[in-house]
Design a protein around this nucleic acid. Sequence first.
RNA 1: GGCCCCAUCGUCUAGCGGUUAGGACAUCACUCUUUCAAGGUGGAGACACGGGUUCGAUUCCCGUUGGGGCCGCCA
Length: 493
Amino acid sequence: MNNQSEVRVRMAPSPTGFFHVGSARTALFNWLFAKHHNGKFILRVEDTDVERSSEDMIDVVLQGMKWLGMDRYEGPYFQSKRIDLYKKYIKKLLETGKAYYCYCDPQILDKERKAAYARKEDWKYDRRCLSLSDANKEKKDQSNTLKAVRFLIPEHRVTYKDIVYGEISRDSKDIEDFIIQRANGMPTYNLACVVDDHDMGISHVIRGADHITNTPKQILLYEACDFAIPEFAHLPLILGPDKSKLSKRHGAVSLDEYKKKGFLPDAMVNYLALLSWSPGDDNEDFMDRKRPENLGTVDMVRLAKEFTLERVNKANAIFDVTKLEWMNQQYVMQLNKPRFRERLKPFVIKHGLMTEEEINQRDKWYAEVCNLMQPRLRTLDEINNQGRYFFKDDFDYDQTALQKFTNRETLTTMKTFLPVIQDINPFDVMNIEITLLNFGENHGLKVKQWIHPLRVFTTGTKAGPPLFDTLELIGKQRCISRIEKMLKQKKES
RNA sequence: GGCCCCAUCGUCUAGCGGUUAGGACAUCACUCUUUCAAGGUGGAGACACGGGUUCGAUUCCCGUUGGGGCCGCCA
């Protein structure tokens, strides 16, 4: 058996095929708590529902854990491989009269329940199978009627002290004799969860607040099985903008979607840690600033050190993507250059901006583009919208900006710049700057008279990195052909 | 319908009887700047309501209202 004082927590996902950010937050809090107390973090897959589970569905969770930097855990254990253990306890409960067989047709029960709700009435299973005579049971067994096992709820109020919510109390008369074993012989969630938490020596059950109502049920089960009851800590729910539990209809809810959008796991961790928890002082920044090479990464050690369940808030929290984006930008911005280049690479390739080979061949050029774009990206995926013009000619033009610069005067100005640009040798920032500035001045042009149209003509946008650096990286020929293209196009219209 | 939980700026939050109610995101000015981003400065912005308790309530208690969660042979 495990040492009594050892902290053992777990994350218990069901294999739904995706990794909800709420689950990620729960995992993180468990992980931080374990780390804080030098305890163990266990991963247990709750896959007792055979019809909806498959082993590869859990892969996305395992990957997500790795992505977030929480890949050191005990397990994963699969409940589907521990059925005998659950059956042992179910049998015991049956033998001691703490559970009983239920032969009811689930469809009929369901109908009754729905009818009651429709009448605005409460409904609870009425224990009709508890009082079944032996003869009757035998008859049903003979005819192979399917039977599930129900837990006979003892009559007394259940009270426990939740680490974050304080005392929570529920009268057991409000709890129905819930099913602990399906007709197909598989245990259900509450039973398996209790048996496992006991068997695995879990000291603290840290999970979403949607499990608050399950807790009294489980405590009753702990008592019936004669297990020691662990500590419970429920975490406020993460809500969508409409204040209901964050779900798929709110848009991006899976960790994977955020990864694909170009969020850094480090920013994700920092943001998630601050949802329902705060360090107490005004510092929300958990970036590792101790060593320059670690900039842009999150300091999980410091987070774990500061994290306590006592500082978890009770109120539900709305997931604020805008703040996440801001935080991500902070992390992206600070990332050391080589690391940023590596992080950006998959997005450059994904959008067909460059191939892996091209990046290797033109690594210096790629690095310079990275330097210019790094401080401007909120998410890595934005490289396509914000910096496509560096790589490709098929970028979109900001039409309103273009309109502004297609008057006769500006077009003429741009035309006079063409040969000047043609003559810049070598075509580097310094030369470009000196030449263009001089030329403009000599022709009585104010800088903004030509610099803005020049930017729009060559990049399609009025916002971006310093223009002369940008021009150099785009290259002379492409600059010229882009300007010519605009002149030609506008003359025709 | 039953049960449980929650309640500070638009959002995330600090506050654990006496504060000019603090910070962050977003927002609005100004500043820096060839544009954008970042940065800097400043502004606006909250204790849901009603009763108690107390010399004194954002803070403690009760109620109201509002919001959320659960009530599956899902987890």
